[in-house]
């Protein structure tokens, strides 16, 4: 009996033991290596159809030859530009509207239901309208990006504005701080962590919709290159471009997180992110 128990503990025990930082890093490297080896070996063994999934080496060589073409860099620049403009406009709208909604209780009370209704409408529903209005131009994709990305920012900023400590606000008032001073010393420090979270969410949503717009509408950029590669049967090239979009998404995440840490290094609650 006790023997039985002892063996049950040892069975797969290693799965549940905690790792230190070095072990974690090595496990991660091993995971990536295994992942890459699978991508290379599975198509070669025929476990998956190599016609549909070329081995990694082929995808990489397609990527290398892509990187040598000016079209690729032009497309990448286009995607980044669309993303940047869309994100910029979304952030501007989101911050202003979020401060109004979060900061003024009456506004919040009367807009809450409308926001609850508008937010779940999928922005891609507006694709046909965007195409009719702007053709395949950048503006069509911008419309999608802005409708999708504005909400994250708006809602986070309004949470932040609601969170401004009433005591701090009263203190500012009782010491007769000028309005601008109050804004910088009371409102900004409170809203900033929320705004940064909103920015991160908006940034990744904006990237997804930038590439989606290029894919569906045909706005110039990486998404459009993927469609062209698919239609011309350049399978390896298509995978290469998909990898690029993945790296782009990863880069956006990493850069925004680094910014987050820089902006909020003084803020204790950086690590504990709100639920909503």
């Amino acid at each position: 009996m006790s023997n039985n128990v002892a063996t049950r503990r040892s069975w797969l025990w290693f799965l549940w033991t905690p790792l230190n930082a070095v072990q974690r890093a090595w496990a991660g490297v091993a995971g990536v290596v295994v992942f890459l080896v699978c991508l290379q070996v599975l198509p070669l063994t025929g476990a998956v159809d190599p016609k549909h999934t070329p081995p990694l080496s082929e995808v990489i060589s397609a990527l290398v030859s892509r990187l040598a073409t000016p079209q690729f860099w032009e497309a990448l620049l286009n995607t980044l530009t669309t993303w940047g403009i869309g994100l910029g406009i979304s952030v501007a709208i989101g911050v202003v509207a979020g401060l109004l909604i979060g900061g003024i209780p009456v506004v919040r009370e009367f807009t809450a239901s409308t926001i609850e209704f508008l937010r779940p409408i999928p922005s891609v529903a507006f694709i046909p309208l965007a195409v009719l209005l702007y053709g395949t131009g950048r503006d069509a994709t911008l419309l999608l990006i802005i409708y999708a990305a504005v909400w994250q920012m708006l809602i986070q900023v309004s949470y932040g504005a609601q969170d401004v400590d009433p005591v701090a606000r009263d203190t500012a008032r009782s010491y007769r701080f000028p309005k601008g001073f109050t804004l910088i010393n009371v409102v900004v420090p409170t809203v900033l962590p929320y705004a940064v979270t909103g920015f991160r969410l908006s940034a990744s949503v904006a990237l997804i919709l930038a590439i989606t717009g290029e894919l569906i509408i045909g706005t110039p950029g990486l998404g459009k290159l993927i469609v062209i590669a698919q239609e011309s049967g350049a399978v390896a090239s298509m995978y290469a471009l998909v990898l690029v979009t993945g790296f782009l998404g990863l880069a956006v995440n990493v850069i925004v997180r680094m910014m987050e840490r820089r902006v909020l290094h003084w803020h204790a609650s950086v690590r504990r992110e709100g639920m909503k």
């Binding site: 998404g223 471009l241 998404g249």
Partner: peptide
């Protein structure tokens, strides 16, 4: 699995 999952998640789902 973490690094591999981080990458896969970063791919825009529509592609």
């Amino acid at each position: 699995t973490e690094p591999a999952l981080e990458f896969l998640r970063a791919i825009p789902p529509t592609v």
